[in-house]
Design a protein around this nucleic acid. Structure first.
Lengths: 125, 125
DNA sequence: GTACATGCAAATATTTTGCAAAGAC
DNA sequence: GTCTTTGCAAAATATTTGCATGTAC
C-alpha cells in the first residue's frame, strides 16, 4: 500500500482525536474537501479495514471507523446524545466454542449496544 | 396497533419461512408490490420493532428483521454465500455488569459474526 | 515508467418523508 | 366518524463506480 498524503491525513486524524470512532462524512468534514474527496475517504477506509489497520463498526446502518492498532473495541451508543462510549471486547473468549458448535470459521465480529448514557438517563428519564 | 392486511402478510411471511431474517427489499419482493408498498414495509418494520414484536439486525449497513417472539437471536453471516446462521444470544448475562461499570442504561444490543460457513470454508478454502 | 490512488461526477442502494386517499375500529 | 395506515412520488442519506488525471515507488 502506498503512503499518500491522504492516507497519512486519515491516520493522523485518528491520532489527534484519541482514536474516537468517526464515520466517512465526519472524516471528510474534519479534513476538508480540498484535502480529500469523499469517495477517497470511503476507498481508503475500505482498504485500511481490509488490511486490519482499521476497525469498522456499523451503527444504525452507518459505518464508523477507528484505528485497530489499539485493542479491539466495541461501542455503546447513547440514543439520546449520540455519543459513542468505547468498551473492551469480552467476546473473543467465546468465539472458539461458537466456531466448533456450528462448524463455522469466524473472521470478524461486530457488536453494538444501544441505550442511555450517564448524563442522558438522568435528564431524559 | 391496527391489524391491517399488510401487517398480517408480513407476520405470515416470517411464519412461512421459518423466521428467516429478511431485509425490507426481500420482504417487498416476496409479497409483491401490489400487496404492499416498500415504504409500508419500512414503516411496519419500524413499528413492529418498536413494539418488540420484531428484532432488527444490521448487517453490512442494511437492516434485516425477524420475529422476536421466539428467543432473542443473533446471526453469523457467511461472507461467501451470504447465508445467515442463527445463534442464541449469550450476551444477556454480561449486560448488567456493563451497565454498572459505565453508568449506562442498556435498551438493546446487536451482534453479528462474519466468516465462512461449513460449506464455504471447505470449498473456498 | 508503471501500477496504484485520487478527484469528479454520476449511479446505486437504502431509508425516510409529505400528502392525499383508503381502511380499521 | 375518527384516527391510523397506506400508496405514491419525491427527497434524504449513505455508499459505490467509471474514467481520466495525478502521484508514489
Amino acid at each position: 500500500m502506498r503512503m499518500t498524503k491522504q492516507r497519512k491525513a486519515i491516520i493522523d486524524l485518528f491520532g489527534q482525536n484519541d482514536n474516537q470512532a468517526l464515520n466517512a462524512d465526519m472524516i471528510h468534514n474534519m479534513l476538508g474537501n480540498e484535502e480529500m474527496n469523499l469517495s477517497t475517504v470511503y476507498r481508503n477506509m475500505d482498504k485500511l479495514t481490509e488490511l486490519g489497520l482499521v476497525q469498522r463498526i456499523i451503527i444504525n446502518t452507518v459505518a464508523y471507523y477507528c484505528l485497530a492498532n489499539s485493542t479491539h473495541r466495541h461501542f455503546m451508543l447513547c440514543t439520546n446524545c449520540k455519543k459513542l462510549i468505547p468498551i473492551h471486547c469480552f467476546l473473543k473468549k467465546m468465539l472458539p466454542a461458537l466456531e466448533e458448535e456450528n462448524d463455522f470459521s469466524i473472521t470478524s465480529h461486530d457488536m453494538t449496544i444501544l441505550g442511555l448514557c450517564h448524563t442522558c438517563k438522568n435528564i431524559a428519564g
